[in-house]
Amino acid sequence: ATNIVSKVKWYNSTKNFGFIEQDNGGKDVFVHKSAVDAAGLHSLEEGQDVIFDLEEKQGKAYAVNLRIK
Rank of each mutant, 00 (worst) to 15 (best):
K60P: 03
K15R: 12
H32W: 03
L54H: 04
A1M: 13
V50W: 01
W10A: 02
E46K: 15
F19T: 02
L41I: 10
V8H: 00
W10H: 03
D23N: 14
Y62M: 08
S43D: 11
I4L: 12
I68L: 13
D23I: 15
F17I: 03
A38M: 09
D49Y: 15
D49H: 14
I4S: 06
E45H: 15
A61N: 10
E21C: 15
G25L: 08
D53R: 04
V36M: 08
G47P: 01
L41K: 05
G26F: 10
D49N: 11
W10Y: 07
F17A: 01
F52W: 09
R67E: 05
I51R: 04
N65L: 03
R67L: 05
K7T: 08
E56V: 15
S34I: 10
I68Q: 08
Q48R: 06
T2F: 14
I68S: 08
T14Y: 12
E56T: 14
K9H: 05
I51D: 04
A39N: 03
Q22H: 14
D23M: 15
G18D: 00
K60D: 05
Q48S: 08
I4G: 06
W10V: 02
V36F: 05
N3Y: 07
D53H: 03
S13A: 13
E46Y: 11
E55H: 11
N16P: 02
T2H: 12
R67M: 05
L41R: 05
R67V: 07
A61K: 14
V29Y: 12
E45C: 14
K7C: 06
V8P: 02
K69G: 12
N12H: 09
G40K: 08
V31I: 10
V36W: 03
A63G: 04
A63L: 04
S43V: 11
A61C: 14
N12I: 07
L41A: 08
F52Q: 01
N3R: 08
K57G: 09
T2N: 10
K15S: 08
L66F: 00
V36H: 01
F19L: 04
H42S: 13
K60W: 10
Y62I: 06
H42R: 13
K60F: 11
E55S: 09
S6A: 15
Y62N: 06
D53K: 03
H32D: 04
I51G: 04
E55V: 14
H32P: 04
V64P: 01
K9D: 02
W10C: 08
F30I: 04
L41D: 03
E21T: 14
N3E: 07
F17S: 02
E55T: 09
F17P: 00
L54C: 08
D23K: 15
N24L: 10
A61G: 08
Q22P: 13
N12V: 06
N3T: 08
Q58N: 15
D37Y: 15
D49W: 15
Y11T: 00
G47V: 02
V5P: 09
G47T: 03
G25D: 09
S13M: 11
L41Y: 09
N12Y: 05
Y11H: 01
A38V: 08
Q58Y: 14
S34P: 02
V8W: 02
L54S: 03
K57P: 03
K9L: 06
Q48I: 09
G59D: 07
G25P: 09
G59R: 05
R67H: 07
G59L: 05
L66C: 03
Q22V: 12
I51S: 06
K69D: 11
T2L: 13
K27W: 09
L66I: 13
Q22S: 15
A63N: 01
K69H: 13
G40W: 05
K33W: 10
L41H: 07
G59P: 01
V50G: 01
F17N: 01
V36I: 11
F52Y: 13
D23Y: 15
A35C: 05
Q58L: 12
F19Y: 06
G40D: 06
L66R: 00
V29M: 04
Q48G: 05
G26R: 12
D49S: 13
V5F: 10
A63E: 03
D37T: 14
D53A: 03
K9E: 01
F30V: 01
Q58T: 08
A1C: 13
A63D: 03
K27S: 10
